[in-house]
Design a protein around this nucleic acid. Structure first.
Length: 864
RNA sequence: GCGAGAGUGGCGGAAUCGGCAGACGCGCUGGAUUUAGGUUCCAGUGGGGCAACCCGUGGGGGUUCAAAUCCCCCCUCUCGUACCA
């Protein structure tokens, strides 16, 4: 064994303890431990990119690691796993460019990620490591797809997708920016293609309702609510003049039906061809063609002026029985409601704009509330004249017909329900609820994803495979380029494509689409529970023991997609009796993004960091000499402000890195990384070291067994209390402050009682586990302190016999006096007034009032 | 537009059951140790005033003995989202 170092050298002790934990399986989670309560703490697993870990990853991972280590010492049986979300586009793109198989790229990246993550000393149970690209994992992803299919929740549909002709592939919405491909900036058009869809809409109501009971950030819950987008209103049928069909619209404002002066259909509306008048046909055809070339994003973004054309057809307003023109316009989406609207220009901003553009009639049927209108800067007379739009509340006018509907004078809410009821009685419509949420497009035309367990027979029939035929493995390929026809690269794997039904001998062709990256992450938290199970996705007994996830930490960028998809799958599994909880993640915390430091010139232009020179605390452009302003910005390759964790660990050690990231500020806050600041934490660890280790490398001579005197004892117990409380609430920044206060005191003390030192190391160990283990060992212990019981705070030791009391005169601080801690208000008053300085300040004035808060302050209110 | 969150020293941040604003750290200033640099240690560090004191938590108003914290109005920034009928 090497001679014990006299100075703190993280590079020596950190690998030593990481090996030790791994070898001894220190952090193995035990199924069904009868003696300890379970705790499941989950990190969002990373996509192992070629760039390696960035400083954002270890932020959340450090937080959960501290929490887990703390909870173990509190007697919990902790499940804390890590794995790899390893399917995805970058590895495939790299394969197209270089011919390297994505599996090789992925393996290499995982190895690098694993090395980096281990270098932080996180207390994962590595025996539960999973990888979504492992056939033994995706076997069960495919199996869950079978369950979805059998429940009727997976179906094939011809839907418009983002098709990029230049790239020869379909793109996800996230991959399309302003109607062009994110990669290469090629145009993207909408093209209908047959796709697998998942019926997430069937779960819309439960996904919405069950949010209420989750311990999640309110912002994330609100985002999911908005995404699901529940609204209630009515469906109304409009008959088409001279036509047998009717057009059904959805409206949240059935009360405004009397103001519906025209109708607008989506350009994709199926009834369009049969109703369009011959003289309008060519204009309609041209408009539809143009609309189809726009991506959905474009359609919504270029929203300044409304466009549309008249179809030449008319519908009959069911309450006024007037004939109203039917238009088409791309501000109406086929994907929401019924793809058709009744337009009430007087009371809907969008319809108002459209009506103004095309000179359509605007009829006010609602007198705005005077006060609300004034607050909105609207003149009621204008609204009444149809010159302004009012979508707020008020009293209905001009809203009665001869068929028994009279809304005049009613407020909006009552008019709504009255109209819905009238429509229902007349068979013209009914109350209805809609959601913005759409079914989940689940196909990707890619190689590097889970193959579908699906075969198409020669007659076109799609059939799912038996569980016994899983996993459907990805075939070996050498050319990963898209086929160009919109088919996946898998269409090139000829041998693999051909399928013969083992039972019937029928010949078929395998599905060439693969699943999106979300698939693997939809259920990975369940596989961690039983990661090596070959017979089933997980053992139900183990699931029951470990679920739900007690704490889930990750970035807010997954607020909607991943978290909504996973909740959806989980609910399906719950309905199938495969999991025991209706929700997967009981408590969710989002760590804030870590920004890099960047620079900009006078014109707000960003300057890459390698062009910046620092002089006397100011910053200048290396080439132009211009003074630059420092500001925090997202880390990016182009700004050259990316911080590499490997370099930081090499220089300061993992413990300092961990402490720094936690000390930066609240976990949830966005924070700028400033490498200079990490030195403060490095110094702190140096002080911890010197508090215990003397110059010669042996224990510091100040360490002895003298009993603690009052003040040091109070500091010790205050630290135990503060660190423990902060670990529960994840307020690690203030816990670290308190430990600094401890070390600032004891590091200078003549006597450093061994017991206090040991308690402190336990408090420090979740935060800086390597140095804590090393010093714990040097204090003579043989076992890891990972399972030592957490120190108990003795409240009695926190009490002081004398406390400093602030004396205020008229609410302003005057002086501070030592008083007995238990002094009551009257005693405090006497003690304060006895003080010469106070007496002088009060002298000659009459005391109006004295407010005394025992243990804190006393305020004397005096008037001349 | 809508939704969510946030504005505190030169910087990161602390203190929000109303009770000493600026804990802790970075930076900075001065000193000690060191051949020197670094390290380490000590002292100081919101602004103004030699001082008593005054001013200070985005701005304005209010409640209170007492407001960063509670109430009203306004401004700015960040994130998310966007013709959802």
């Amino acid at each position: 064994m090497k001679q014990a170092s006299p100075v703190y050298k993280p590079s020596e002790i950190e690998p030593k303890w990481q090996d030790c934990w791994l070898r001894n399986r220190t952090f193995k989670a035990r199924d069904f431990d009868p003696d300890r309560p379970k705790l499941y703490v989950l990190d969002m697993f990373p996509y192992p990119s070629g760039a390696g870990l960035h400083v954002g990853h270890p932020e959340g991972y450090t937080a959960t690691d501290i929490y887990c280590r703390y909870k173990r010492m509190r007697g919990y049986n902790v499940l804390h796993p890590m794995g790899w979300d390893a399917f995805g586009l970058p590895a495939e793109q790299y394969a197209i460019e270089t011919g390297t198989h994505p599996r090789l790229t992925t393996e290499k990246n995982i190895e690098n990620f694993r090395r980096q993550i281990r270098s932080f000393g996180f207390s994962y149970d590595w025996e539960r490591e999973i990888n979504t690209t492992d056939p033994e994992y995706y076997r069960w992803t495919q199996w869950i797809f079978l369950q979805l299919y059998r429940r009727g929740l997976a179906y094939l549909d011809e839907v418009p997708v983002n098709w990029c002709p230049a790239l020869g592939t379909v793109l996800a919405n996230e991959e399309v920016v302003n109607g062009r491909s994110e990669r290469g900036n090629h145009p993207v058009v909408r093209k209908p293609m047959k796709q697998w869809m998942l019926r997430i809409t069937e779960y819309a109501e439960r996904l919405l309702r069950d949010l209420d009971d989750l311990d999640w950030p309110e912002g994330i819950k609100e985002m999911q609510r908005n995404w699901i987008g529940k609204s209630s209103g009515a469906e109304v049928d409009f008959e088409i003049v001279g036509h047998s069909d009717t057009i059904r619209v959805y409206t949240t404002r059935p009360d405004t039906l009397f103001g519906a002066t025209y109708m607008v259909l989506s350009p994709e509306h199926p009834l369009l061809d049969s109703i369009v008048a011959p003289e309008a046909a060519s204009a309609v055809r041209e408009y539809r063609q143009q609309a189809s070339l726009k991506s959905e994003l474009e359609r919504t973004e270029l929203s300044k002026t409304k466009t549309g054309v008249f179809t030449g057809a008319y519908a009959r307003n069911p309450v006024t029985e007037e004939e109203i023109p039917i238009w088409i316009g791309d501000y109406v989406m086929m994907g929401y409601g019924t793809g058709a609207i009744m337009a009430v220009p007087a009371h809907d901003e969008r319809d108002f704009e459209f009506a103004k553009t095309f000179g359509l009639p605007i009829r006010c049927i609602l007198e705005p509330e005077r006060e609300a209108a004034a607050a909105a800067g609207l003149e009621v007379e204008q609204a009444l004249a149809g010159e302004a739009c009012w979508s707020g509340d008020g009293a209905l006018i001009n809203s009665a017909n001869r068929r028994g509907l009279d809304l005049n004078g009613l407020p909006v809410a009552e008019a709504k329900s009255r109209t819905s009821e009238w429509l229902r009685q007349k068979g013209l419509g009914k109350a209805a609820t809609k959601y913005k949420l759409r079914d989940w497009l689940f196909s990707r035309q890619r190689y590097w994803g889970e193959p579908f367990p699906v075969v198409y027979f020669e007659d076109g029939e799609a059939q799912i495979l038996d569980q016994g035929e899983l996993p459907v493995r990805l075939p070996e390929l050498h050319d990963f380029k898209p086929s160009g026809s919109g088919e996946s690269p898998l269409a090139k794997a000829e041998e693999w494509l051909n399928y013969t039904d083992p039972k019937t001998g029928r010949r078929g062709r395998r599905e060439t689409h693969t699943m999106p990256q979300w698939a693997g992450s939809c259920w990975y938290y369940l596989r961690y529970i039983d990661p090596r199970n070959q017979g089933q996705a997980w053992d139900p007994a183990k699931e029951k023991y470990w679920m739900p996830v007690d704490l889930y930490v990750g970035g807010a960028e997954h607020a909607v997609l991943h978290l909504l998809y996973a909740r959806f799958w989980h609910k399906v599994l719950f309905d199938l009796g495969l999991v025991s909880t209706p929700e997967p993640f009981a408590r969710l915390v989002n760590q804030g993004m870590i920004l890099g430091l960047s620079y900009r010139d006078r014109n707000q232009h960003l300057v890459p960091n390698d062009l910046v020179e620092a002089r006397d605390g100011q910053f200048f452009h290396r080439e132009t000499g211009e003074e630059l302003e420092e500001f925090p910005a997202k880390m990016s390759k182009s700004l050259k402000n990316v911080v590499n964790p490997d370099e930081i660990i090499a220089q300061y050690g993992a413990d300092a890195f961990r402490l720094y990231e936690m000390f930066m500020g609240p976990l949830q806050a966005v924070k700028p990384w400033q490498t200079k600041d990490i030195e403060g934490l490095s110094r702190f660890l140096g002080k911890v070291w010197r508090m215990l280790i003397g110059r010669d490398g042996s224990l510091a001579p100040e360490i002895d067994d003298t009993p603690l005197s009052d003040e040091p004892e109070r500091i010790l117990h205050a630290t135990i209390k503060k660190v423990g409380e902060d670990c529960e609430t994840l307020d690690f920044n203030t816990a670290i402050s308190q430990m600094m206060i401890f070390v600032n005191h004891f590091g200078k003390a003549e006597h450093r009682p061994r017991a206090a030192m040991e308690s402190f190391l336990k408090l420090l160990s979740p935060f800086a586990p390597h140095i804590a283990e090393e010093l714990w060992q040097r204090l003579g212990h043989r076992e890891s302190l990972a399972w030592e019981p957490w120190p108990e705070c003795d409240e009695k030791k926190l009490r002081q016999s004398e406390v400093e009391i602030l004396v205020q005169i008229m609410g302003r601080p005057k002086t501070r006096l030592m008083m007995p801690a238990e002094a009551d208000p009257e005693q405090m008053r006497q003690l304060a007034l006895a003080d010469p300085e106070v007496a002088a300040a009060v002298g000659g004035k009459s005391i109006v009032k004295v407010v005394a808060v025992p243990g804190r302050l006393i305020n004397i209110v005096a008037k001349p």
